[in-house]
Nucleic acid binder design. Structure first.
Lengths: 207, 207
DNA sequence: CGCTTAGTTGAAGCGAATCAAAACTAGTGG
DNA sequence: CCACTAGTTTTGATTCGCTTCAACTAAGCG
């Protein structure tokens, strides 16, 4: 597996793939966080997913003429990727069925997350969205760093959070201020989280 | 494949799976349309996906202790399913790699659609949402019935459309009225579409 | 036909967006 | 170490698009 892999490093903000690019290869995030972004000419943006270490980036599978990438992939923090050329990767899938099964299982998880987010974007209030976001991030952080550590940096700035949960950055800021005032989350500076009341967040996150 | 399949028929409105149900088997839609629904106690609902003939229903793959279903699956019109018991189906996947590959490919398509919908729910205006919905449905209908036929029944009523695109049914109704008035779509009754100006719809659908 | 459900239309209210400005952070170089 | 600048975050005032509430109309069905 390592034999066919190529490494790539990206600085914060740099794109790995641009919307519409003829695409491409598969990859694996080994360190850092990336965002999947869809943007309009008029400035509107929607983040459709975050990639954490161990997450996959899918090329266009089995398509003879790969379509343009549906969204850009950009580094949020310093990002390390492990890239697999498309054809080589598909060979690999054929040769190692357990790898393909794993990939299918992961993809179903991603689909589940996307649908969860559809509920958030379609039906939740501003407060519920922000609370849900905090729950999602703390869960991710715990899975990675393992264990109940409520002490980590938010992977996104206010503007990116807004684009992820379908609000404006002003509304996000106001809701975070409210959570701070109510003692539901604690901050050190603007990005570093030092305290989280998970139970209260769940109450405020809605369904 | 047919050897392990069981058939099931559902009337409009009937559930195949309820939210939270211990789940389950895999299935294939052979006829009709189904909706995937997530609902809150306070009445809010979000449809996170539609299933047309040939679409798959996923059970909990490879999980030793299947989690509760994240959303219910309900018949929209008369629905015919082909059901495969979970363990049998997983055997099948092991024995026929090409089936698994196909399934992976389909799942990636579903993920793409879900993310497209995240953009709609997070950033589009009411008019853009309704236009996008019409484009989506006409495309689906053409794929199924094949060829440029702009003559079909909407698979959903106003309330379900609203729950699919994250609006209220009143707003949906107003936007459809506007499209009719502007000659972008034509109706016979309230559900039967007899004319669609695809180009104009695309203009109004936003990004 | 009456009856029930689904869809349309109107008026008023509200939550989040927008517009605007101040406060805070972080980097840079004197 | 501090002043200076550019970018981010917070806070405030106002506006606007969609929701809500309400009444009416059309369509499907025993």
């Amino acid at each position: 597996m390592n034999a066919i892999a190529r490494r790539k490093s990206l600085d914060p903000g740099q794109p790995h793939v641009m919307e519409g690019d003829a695409s491409h290869d598969f990859a694996n995030v080994t360190s850092g966080v990336a965002k999947l972004v869809r943007g309009a000419e008029d400035g509107r943006r929607q983040i459709v997913g975050l990639l954490f270490p161990s997450d996959f980036i899918y090329g266009s599978l089995g398509k003879s003429e790969p379509a343009g990438a549906p969204h850009s992939i950009e580094a949020v923090s310093s990002l390390e990727l492990c890239i697999f050329p498309r054809l080589k990767f598909e060979e690999l899938l054929r040769d190692y069925p357990s790898l393909e099964f794993k990939l299918l299982s992961r993809t179903l998880d991603e689909l589940q997350i996307a649908r969860e987010w559809m509920v958030l974007l379609g039906r939740k209030t501003a407060e519920e969205r922000v609370a849900s976001f905090f729950l999602y991030v703390t869960q991710k952080m715990n899975n990675l760093g393992c264990q109940g550590q409520t002490n980590f940096d938010l992977p996104l700035g206010r503007a990116d959070i807004a684009d992820y949960i379908g609000l404006t950055l002003e509304t996000v800021s106001r809701q975070i201020s409210k959570l701070k005032k109510d003692g539901v989350v604690g901050f050190e500076g603007t990005k570093h989280v030092i305290y989280v009341d998970r139970e209260e967040l769940e109450k405020r996150a809605g369904f």
